[in-house]
Amino acid sequence: MKNSLFYAKILLFGEYGIIENSRGLTLPYNTYKGTLQFPSSLSESQLKSNKSLYNFLIYLKKIELPSRFKLNLKSLEKDIENGMFFDSNIPQGYGVGSSGALVAAIFDKYSGHKVSPDTISKNDLKDLKIIFGKMESFFHGKSSGIDPLICYMNIPLLIQPDAEVDKAKISENNEGKGAVFLINSGIPGETEPMVKIFFEKLKNDGFRKTLKEEFIKYNNECIDSFLNKDMKSFFKSLKHLSSWALNNFTPMIPSDFLKIWEKGISSNTYYLKLCGSGGGGYILGFTEDYETTQELLKDYNKEIVYRF
């Protein structure tokens, strides 16, 4: 059986803010990928994946999807009984869409409604986001649907307020001194506990006020200047965003990374932000001079996502 590949994703901007109606910007990350497969004999990890698919099937039987997006659950159940598993090298708990890719793969294979990135309408994008949110909630307790959507479409997406989603124009670029990069924290994060911390913080009027007046403002400024290639304005807003996160998202930042987070801000060499919900996994970095940044962060495992 030959199935489609589904790639990881990077949420450049919008973590947590999307919950409060901020904008978001996300792009595919083709270093990691996954696909549904049938094995000749199940290994221990493949058996674990197969059992996870069965638990997911039980959940899918309980939720309602619009009729045109209905999944063929009988066919899915038969394939699971025949040993189907999700063959993936996407690291779990690292904020790059491991569950999103799985949801996208299931939808692609078992939904009767197919869409093309080239011809998809804004209404379909919005509907898919809602449907994927319902499906991925099995893994995280609550999901915006953004991760599966970007994994399914495999194109950059701009998330607008009120759940509107547009295709984003980000030119492919493998050259330049600047870079968007990932730092591996070495420990997986768990989305649900981090989201619970965020909702607890939202109960504080002061936090809610600064989130709306500062965090969302800097987040949206970063998106606009990045898309417009105004890098001077971009890094100015990014410094504010990174500083705000250091002061307000401390529980979501692995403690071993607080010093290098502050070092980037004070040196103006690079700026860090959360990659997804935080708590572990990857940390996202931005720099105008990757060579210098690489030397400053030589003791950390890094991966380049995008050059500019």
Rank of each mutant, 00 (worst) to 15 (best):
E200L: 00
V103K: 01
F235K: 14
Y218C: 00
N268G: 02
S98T: 08
I265W: 08
T31K: 13
I80E: 11
S49D: 10
F308R: 02
K209D: 07
E190S: 14
T35Q: 15
N21V: 02
L12K: 01
L274Y: 03
E20M: 01
L11M: 10
L102Y: 14
L182S: 09
E214Q: 10
E81Q: 10
G83E: 10
A101W: 13
K9T: 08
T292R: 05
Y110H: 02
S277E: 07
F107Q: 07
V103M: 03
V115A: 07
F38V: 14
Q46K: 06
P91G: 10
I187N: 13
I10L: 02
N21P: 00
F38I: 02
G97E: 07
V305I: 06
S111M: 08
S255H: 15
I80T: 08
N173E: 11
K201N: 14
E15W: 04
Y110R: 03
S255Q: 15
T210K: 09
S67E: 11
Q294T: 09
K209M: 06
L128V: 05
K239Q: 15
F181V: 08
F249L: 12
S237N: 15
L284A: 01
D230L: 01
N219M: 03
Y7W: 05
F308M: 04
D162V: 00
N123P: 00
L12Q: 04
R68S: 01
K196Q: 14
A8K: 04
I253N: 00
N21R: 05
N55L: 07
E295C: 05
L272T: 07
Y29T: 05
T31Q: 12
K203T: 13
E164D: 12
Q92K: 12
S52T: 11
S4C: 02
E295K: 14
Y7G: 01
S243H: 14
K109S: 13
N82D: 15
T293F: 11
I159T: 00
W244S: 13
I63Q: 05
K263Q: 11
G112R: 04
G83N: 08
N55Y: 09
Y290C: 01
F257Y: 14
P28T: 12
T26V: 10
G264A: 06
T293K: 08
N72E: 13
G285L: 01
Y94S: 01
L12E: 04
R23V: 00
S277A: 15
S266R: 08
S255F: 15
I304T: 09
I170L: 15
P188Q: 14
E164W: 08
F69T: 02
M135F: 13
K302R: 03
L25M: 00
M153Q: 03
G34E: 13
L102M: 13
F226V: 05
F56Q: 12
K273C: 07
F181G: 05
V195W: 12
V180K: 02
P28S: 12
I223Q: 03
S233F: 10
T292C: 04
S49Y: 07
S22H: 01
G189K: 13
I10H: 04
F56V: 09
F257S: 10
N219C: 03
F69M: 08
L27W: 03
T250W: 10
I19R: 02
I146Q: 06
A101G: 12
D108Y: 12
Y271Q: 09
K239W: 15
I253A: 04
N3Y: 10
